[in-house]
Nucleic acid binder design. Structure first.
Length: 210
DNA sequence: AAAACGGGGGC
DNA sequence: GCCCCAGTTTT
């Protein structure tokens, strides 16, 4: 790579590490995203499949006992609190929103267990809105590349929005996860096999130390 | 600012 | 065995 502008590198990551969401139904995306908090992707998939095979929709989960739901998903590394929140979220959606997931950051973040990142992912994946969720992958990779230098999530969200064109925000979220899982890992990143290492400050710093 | 939630996987 | 994981809430 000879052009290392962030928007070019970001587009390359999106091209090389596409992410396909198996479901775009807002409710399922919301639940899967809550399940994905501090949890590896494989476990999230196992848990959401089990969950939806027993409780197909928001009305079923709203009526479920939190303990039953927890027993169903705990083998995939989920904790009790998450099961409780998912039931609570579902009740609110049924009672307040007539069974439909709200589509604004403000309303979404009022739901228990839904913070800024989760809400942004739902807005982005389900509602096609330009929203950049700065999760650990996006944060780590952006720092390694040298795009940002802050450690504060809110600040990095603001800075990245200035650096990257809006049309990349959506696809970048998922692609950063794939890229972060397979190459730009938290520990032992596969820098030698990394297709964009020539644009990476972390890689050039490591090279210099040898 | 820090702890708690939590089992599974990488190392 | 220890550390980390598409974070959020509570203390």
């Amino acid at each position: 790579m000879n052009n290392c502008k962030p928007e070019v590198v970001a587009a390359k990551i999106i091209e090389l590490f596409p992410r396909i969401h198996q479901d775009s139904d807002p409710y399922r995306v919301l639940v899967s995203t809550v399940l994905s908090q501090r949890t590896r992707d494989e476990n999230t998939e196992v848990a959401s499949k089990k969950l939806f095979s027993v409780y197909p929709d928001v009305f079923a989960i709203a009526k479920a006992k939190p303990e039953d739901l927890y027993n169903l998903i705990k083998a995939a590394g989920m904790y009790r609190q998450k099961a409780e929140r998912i039931v609570e979220i579902s009740k609110i959606i049924v009672e307040t929103y007539n069974g439909k997931v709200p589509d604004t950051l403000e309303e979404l973040t009022k739901l228990p267990g839904v913070g800024r990142k989760t809400a942004n992912i739902v807005l982005n994946v389900s509602f096609g809105k330009a929203a950049l969720a700065v999760d650990t992958h996006v944060h780590r990779i952006s720092n390694r590349l040298g795009w940002i230098k802050t450690k504060q999530p809110e600040q990095s969200e603001f800075e990245l929005q200035k650096i990257l064109p809006e049309e990349l925000w959506g696809p970048l979220n998922g692609s950063m996860v794939e890229f972060g899982r397979r190459v730009c890992k938290p520990v032992n990143p596969q820098c030698n096999e990394c297709p964009i290492n020539s644009c990476c400050r972390y890689f050039s710093d490591v090279q210099k130390k040898r």
